[in-house]
Design a protein around this nucleic acid. Structure first.
Length: 217
DNA sequence: CGTTCGATGCACT
DNA sequence: GTGCATCGAACGT
């Protein structure tokens, strides 16, 4: 299986929208005791600062949100809806709370391991490979990520993000931008980035008719 | 196709 | 007590 170059800390120590765009095409991987699983990132969301009402840090610094205020390149994993874990990469700089939520992957390594992990949580088995890591809770399950991975260092730990030289994703155009999914506030900010038309993207998948490619304002 | 709704635990008010 | 950065089974069209 391919070996990539681990993204350095400086990759994360940048404006969050830039990180959200540049994460598309990179590879999220987890080397667990039961095996390696990885996938190409095809969908991300940016959560930026206490002034972003959808960012958990809108509630200020609490035990839960503390990782958002930590070093760029740390994992922020949290528990939601009573049963799901969601994975973020902390961005910007220490003391400024911001992160990118990883929302979907195109499965790469460990497809059968992903299938087994997903099967433990479902009545019916997952069909297409493209559905294995479609959605933030699904990808965490497929990669075997839970709250124990909160605060892990994405630069040095078993949970990492690599560059394997995929430009973006073969056959797909530049990033599309739109409103973030599953939030009640801050829906006016187009801070969700995805690979337009990719089958592993959750929610709206097509590029909006309006302009795309560049970062939102 | 589409929409609705229950599962399930915890941080925070 | 309230509200989730979700998912998928079950139903209606």
């Amino acid at each position: 299986m391919a070996r990539g170059r681990v993204l350095p800390r400086r990759f994360y120590a940048r404006p969050t929208l830039e990180v959200a765009a540049d994460l598309l095409g990179k590879v999220l991987l987890h080397e667990a005791a039961d095996g390696l699983a990885s996938g190409i990132i095809v969908e991300t969301e940016a959560y930026i600062g206490e002034s972003d009402p959808a960012c958990h840090a809108a509630a200020g610094l609490t035990p839960r949100t503390a990782p958002l205020y930590g070093s760029p390149g740390m994992a922020y994993v949290y528990f939601s809806y009573g049963m799901h874990c969601l994975v973020n990469a902390v961005t910007e700089r220490e003391g400024f709370p911001a992160a990118c939520l990883i929302r979907a992957l195109q499965p790469l390594d460990g497809v059968e391991l992903m299938r087994a992990r997903r099967a433990e949580r479902r009545a019916t088995p997952v069909g297409r490979d493209a559905d294995l890591c479609r959605g933030p809770a699904n990808l965490a399950t497929a990669l075997g990520i839970d709250l124990r991975h909160n605060r892990l260092d994405l630069v040095t730990s078993a949970l990492r993000i690599e560059d394997r030289g995929f430009g973006v994703v073969d056959g797909f155009g530049p990033a599309a931008w739109g409103s973030r999914i599953g939030i009640r506030v801050g829906t006016d900010r187009p801070w969700r980035a995805w690979v337009p038309g990719h089958p592993a993207v959750s929610g709206p998948r097509e590029r909006p008719a309006t302009a795309g490619g560049r970062l939102p304002a």
